[in-house]
C-alpha cells in the first residue's frame, strides 16, 4: 500500500507529463526515498497508478543502476570507479572502505549502516578520487580522510 505522502508526491509528478507511465522513474524514486528500496509489492502498487503492468514497470526499474530492487543499508556509498578517479587512486580508496566496513562492492555492512556500490564517473574529475554518500559528494579522497567522513553518518536512518 502506498502511503498518503507517497501518493501525493507521485500525483505532483504525474502533472508534469502527458502520459502517466512517463512519471515511472520519479515514482520509483519517491518510493525508494521513503522506504530505502523498491520491493515486488511496491512494483505492483506503483504499476497500478501508472497504468503499466508490473512487468513493464519492473523492466524499467531493473534497467537503472540507482533503483534498488533489493534492500540497502541506511546510507549508500557510491564510489566512482571510472578513468580519472581510477588513475588518481580509486584502488586505495576502495581498499580503505573494504577494511573499515568489512564489505566488498555490492555488499551491505553487517550492522546495516552502509551499502557500497560502484558508480560510473560522478563528474567530479577535478577532485578525483571521489565518492558520494547519500546526497553528499566527497572529493580528493585519501584513506586518511575516511574515518572522519564515515563518522558523519548516523546509525539511524535520516
Amino acid at each position: 500500500m502506498l502511503s498518503e505522502k507517497e501518493k501525493n508526491e507521485i500525483e505532483t509528478e504525474l502533472k508534469q507529463y502527458e502520459h502517466k507511465r512517463a512519471a515511472c522513474v520519479e515514482a520509483l524514486k519517491i518510493m525508494q526515498h521513503s522506504r530505502g528500496w523498491v520491493s515486488d509489492d511496491g512494483i505492483h502498487d506503483l504499476a497500478g497508478i501508472l497504468g503499466m503492468t508490473p512487468d513493464e514497470l519492473d523492466g524499467v526499474a531493473t534497467f537503472y543502476s540507482l533503483i534498488f530492487r533489493k534492500p540497502v543499508g541506511r546510507h549508500v556509498i557510491l564510489i566512482c570507479n571510472t578513468i580519472s578517479c581510477w588513475v588518481m587512486g580509486y584502488n586505495q580508496v576502495l581498499r580503505s572502505l573494504n577494511e573499515r566496513l568489512g564489505i566488498g562492492l555490492g555488499d551491505t555492512s553487517a550492522d546495516g549502516r552502509f551499502t557500497l556500490l560502484p558508480v560510473p564517473c560522478l563528474g567530479a574529475c577535478d577532485q578525483a578520487p571521489a565518492m558520494m554518500i547519500d546526497n553528499e559528494l566527497y572529493g580528493d579522497l585519501t584513506p586518511e580522510k575516511m574515518d572522519e567522513i564515515l563518522g558523519k553518518y548516523s546509525w539511524e536512518r535520516d
Partner: peptide
C-alpha cells in the same frame, strides 16, 4: 532526474527514458 544509465545521454534513448 534520471536514475543512472550512461545510455540515457544518447538522444533517442533519452526520449524512450522520458516516455517511461
Amino acid at each position: 532526474t534520471s536514475a543512472g544509465r550512461y545510455i540515457c545521454g544518447e538522444e533517442t534513448a533519452l526520449l524512450n527514458a522520458l516516455e517511461g
